[in-house]
Design a protein around this nucleic acid. Sequence first.
DNA 1: TATAACTTGTTATAATATAACACTTTTATG
DNA 2: CATAAAAGTGTTATATTATAACAAGTTATA
Lengths: 132, 132
Amino acid sequence: MKIKSQKLSKNEKVVLEVVKKSNGPIKAYTILSDVKKNGLKAPPQVYRALDKLIKKGKIHRIESKNAYLDCQNSKCKTSSRTAFSICQKCEKVTEIINTKLSKFLSNFKDDAGKEYQKYNLEFYGICKKCKS
Amino acid sequence: MKIKSQKLSKNEKVVLEVVKKSNGPIKAYTILSDVKKNGLKAPPQVYRALDKLIKKGKIHRIESKNAYLDCQNSKCKTSSRTAFSICQKCEKVTEIINTKLSKFLSNFKDDAGKEYQKYNLEFYGICKKCKS
DNA sequence: TATAACTTGTTATAATATAACACTTTTATG
DNA sequence: CATAAAAGTGTTATATTATAACAAGTTATA
Ligand SMILES: [Zn+2]
Ligand SMILES: [Zn+2]
Ligand SMILES: [Zn+2]
Ligand SMILES: [Zn+2]
């Protein structure tokens, strides 16, 4: 199994910094307006960087929010198996890092006996802060 | 726990029929062009119907594809707990109906001991047909 | 029948994402 | 090194997906 290079290009670095310093999931066009000071001007520059960063396991896409979040899991070498907790009130998102869960899903066989190399799981609820 | 009415409005019925007869996930604007013969003309008419149908558990949204699929699970009274198998080659999507899986996820507690009443899980792989 | 709740029709626009093409930089290879 | 291949960048235009806002019609129900 070939290991994908984790080296980042100039634009990838710029975009990753913005995603990292955002407090939670950030949208592509929010990133774009932010990176304009770094000389990036057009959507494709941002989307390309996002796509690469996802492939390199540096960030994840929160599908139900069209937003991007930096990986909070040191073990996340790739983006192939992800799980998130999403607050329906404040929109806070955290990556779930749970061995029992990832083992269960990685080993899961469907009724045809098929296993899956890749999954994305999004849990929805109300976070602790919003409950109190 | 209040049971949501499953009664469908005229537009909801029209849209549901199109989703049902499509062979796999269908996009909102594909639905729109299809329902034009029924007098529906504008995106909001389709999107409203889709939203209601999702809430009523008649269809599901495949988040990673921006597409809609009719519910294949007779037990799916609501859309709160869903799992899908998605072929990365032919884009075929099937709803996973598996008691072990749904029990595990429904009972899953994160590290803070929190349970979730809602989730969406998308598995990605290559379907049987595409493998052979 | 009044009135609230829901449903529809319509126009316009917002938000998200990609195609296509020219050019530059980096990497690999003989 | 030379040079070709691969990866990355800049740019314009456009495609795709989704919602805001408002007016009007319909249905439930008390
Ligand atoms: Zn991660
Ligand atoms: Zn919250
Ligand atoms: Zn279902
Ligand atoms: Zn397939």
